[in-house]
Each structure stands twice: as structure tokens, then as C-alpha cells.
């Protein structure tokens, strides 16, 4: 028999798309052409530009200014071991870089070879990706590198004439985070029971309500429930309500056809198990009042790999689903209010 899982690795990945609005579009469209710009607002040139003056929140306007590509480091740090989210795969610096022509620094990456090369006052220069690879995102600048020629940037501080229409109005933002949760004692209890072919609940000694898929507490009484409150509940019951979901396609969606999730009021237990699948009939044939019984996976094929702290109450791959017993339906009216 497979063990219950102690840790769950969960990758939260999603391709977000950000619309930029006028100011950021102007910046991005210029950047993709190799030109960094700022905006003159509140008496200073802010680069990269913000839509609003950070001091007053007034609109920044469109007094665009060419800045860089060279600039001066004001403060810095060093990243000896980059993470998967950092833009470089070798040790690098982060720095505040005041670009020529700008009054405020921008935060960016400095590829200086070694920590000892970093210093306040160092002159650096933007190193761009190949033009074809530029998408107008801040990381079109691969990094700033020590400037070969420390003299001022040509054209910095001069006005920038923005085009009528910007080429770039959106940016991709891929979220890629890894979480490692661990099974709580309550989750482990549930998963072990499933592996043994048992459905368990916890009965509150105060209000005597039973919750199937133990939660370690009574949400009515706010008291802790532990192993001593565990009871076995029947693996038969009556469908008390259901939902038929027409799947919307999204990143990570696993369903393509309408699917059903049922609440089942377990026989004699005064307790409901939720989010269950019904086998052998189509979604449109599911009715409130049907008698059903649990279909367990064979003991040697059961798995609870998917039972984490969020999915308590789900049967994992230990419960295949629930099938009709063939008994006549109960009157729906007696069950409809028992979604829970």
C-alpha cells in the first residue's frame, strides 16, 4: 500500500498579460527601438516614466525626455546565486542607476563580472538584446555593463518625440512560483482512512455535528477536534444536490466536457460529503434523491497523492466515484437543503 504523502510541491504558473496604458506604452515602444525615455514631471525627469508624479499624484503628462544609455550607479548590491526568476544565470549586481538626462535612478541589473567591480559612482551602459528579440519590456536591457567610455551619453536630456500610435500596448508577465506544503495531521488522517477504504468524519462533542473530510476543528463551536473525535461514516447515501459545470478553458484546465459534482447525504450519518462524481450516467441524468454507493479503487490501486490540505473531503484516487444502487429515488424535497 502506498504511503500517504507528507509534502506537496505545487507550481503556481500563469501567463498574465498586462495592458500598459499610454505612458508605459510610450516607454515600451521606445525601448524596443533601443531608446530609453523618461518624463519630466514635478520639476524632475523620472526615468523610467510613471503615469503620475509620485509626490502629487498629478498626471505626468507627455514631456518625454531621452535618457541614457549611460548612467551612474548610486547604490548597489550583489546576487552571488541567482534564482530562476533573475534575468542572468550568473552572479550579478542590482543597482540604482541614474541615467544621463534623468533625475531619478532606475533599478536594473549590472553585469560587472565580480562584486569587487561594483561601486557607487561607477559609470555603466545599457546592453540591449538583439533588436528582433526586443518586446518593449524592461528586460529588453539584458544588463548594464561598465561603460567603456565614461563620457556623457549623446542626446541625453533632449526631448523625445513620441509617435502618434505606440507599437507596443501589452506585455507578458509569466508567474512562476513553487510552493511546498506539508500534510497536516488532519489531512494525513483522512488520506490514511481512504487508503483503508474508510470514509471518516469528526463529530463535535459540543454541537454533535459531523464533518466529513475532517478539518481539525468545529466551525460552529471553534473548538479543536482530533483523532478522538473521528467516526466512521457509511459509504452509501442519497444525492442531496449537485452542480453541472460546463468547463471554461483556462491555463491548466483538465476538463473538456460538462462534469458533475454532487453532495451526498450519507445514510444515517446526518453528514454530507461534497464534490463527488457519479458514475455510469450522463451529467443530465443526475437527480436529487438518487441512492448511491461509493466505488472504491482496488486496494492495490488506491492513491491519495492528490489529497492535500486544500482538498480534504475529496476522495483522491481511492474513490473512483459513486454509482446508483438501483433503489427508488427519495423525494427531492427532503434533501435539497442538505448541500452541507
Amino acid at each position: 500500500m502506498a504511503d500517504t504523502v507528507q509534502e506537496f510541491v505545487f507550481n503556481l504558473t500563469f501567463p498574465f498579460t498586462r495592458t500598459l496604458g499610454s505612458t508605459l506604452s510610450t516607454f515600451s515602444s521606445a525601448l524596443a527601438q533601443g531608446q530609453i525615455i523618461g518624463v519630466r514631471t514635478g520639476g524632475r525627469v523620472i526615468a523610467p516614466p510613471l503615469e503620475y508624479d509620485p509626490d502629487s499624484a498629478a498626471d505626468s503628462g507627455t514631456d518625454w525626455v531621452r535618457v541614457g544609455p549611460k548612467g551612474t550607479v548610486s547604490t548597489w548590491t550583489w546576487v552571488p546565486e541567482p534564482t530562476n526568476l533573475h534575468p542572468l544565470d550568473h552572479a550579478f549586481g542590482f543597482a540604482f542607476i541614474t541615467l544621463d538626462g534623468a533625475d531619478t535612478p532606475m533599478l536594473h541589473v549590472v553585469d560587472a563580472g565580480s562584486e569587487s567591480a561594483m561601486a557607487a559612482g561607477m559609470r555603466v551602459e545599457a546592453s540591449f538584446k538583439a533588436p528582433a528579440d526586443c518586446v518593449g519590456r524592461i528586460d529588453d536591457i539584458i544588463a548594464f555593463v561598465p561603460a567603456a567610455d565614461p563620457s556623457p551619453s549623446e542626446g541625453a536630456g533632449e526631448p523625445f518625440a513620441a509617435p502618434e500610435e505606440n507599437d507596443i500596448t501589452e506585455m507578458d508577465a509569466y508567474c512562476d512560483l513553487t510552493y511546498v506544503d506539508n500534510a497536516s495531521p488532519t489531512t494525513t488522517m483522512w488520506a490514511k482512512a481512504l487508503m483503508e477504504g474508510r470514509i471518516i468524519g469528526q463529530k463535535c462533542p459540543q454541537c454533535e455535528r459531523t464533518i466529513v473530510g475532517p478539518r481539525g476543528m468545529c466551525s460552529v463551536c471553534a473548538i479543536e477536534l482530533d483523532e478522538s473525535h473521528v467516526i466512521d461514516v457509511p459509504d452509501r447515501g442519497v444525492v442531496s444536490n449537485f452542480t453541472i459545470v460546463t468547463p471554461v478553458q483556462y491555463h491548466g484546465q483538465t476538463e473538456t466536457e460538462p462534469f458533475v459534482r454532487c453532495s451526498i447525504l450519507l445514510d444515517g450519518a446526518n453528514a454530507v460529503i461534497a464534490q463527488q462524481e457519479i458514475l455510469g450516467i450522463t451529467a443530465s441524468e443526475v437527480r436529487v434523491g438518487m441512492h448511491v454507493e461509493c466505488v472504491w479503487a482496488p486496494a492495490n490501486e488506491r492513491s491519495v497523492q492528490d489529497i492535500d490540505n486544500r482538498s480534504r473531503g475529496s476522495g483522491g484516487d481511492a474513490i473512483i466515484g459513486w454509482r446508483l444502487t438501483g433503489e427508488p429515488d427519495e423525494p427531492a424535497e427532503n434533501y435539497l437543503n442538505r448541500m452541507m
Binding site: V248, Y250, G252, Q253, F259
Partner: peptide, 14 residues
């Protein structure tokens, strides 16, 4: 910017 159905599903399918 994203997808609410994805977010409500905890980043999982179904």
C-alpha cells in the same frame, strides 16, 4: 490580466 476561473481553482484543473 489573468483568469478568475484559474485563480478560483487554486491553479488546478476542473
Amino acid at each position: 490580466e489573468g483568469n478568475a476561473q484559474f485563480a478560483l481553482g487554486g491553479g488546478k484543473g476542473a
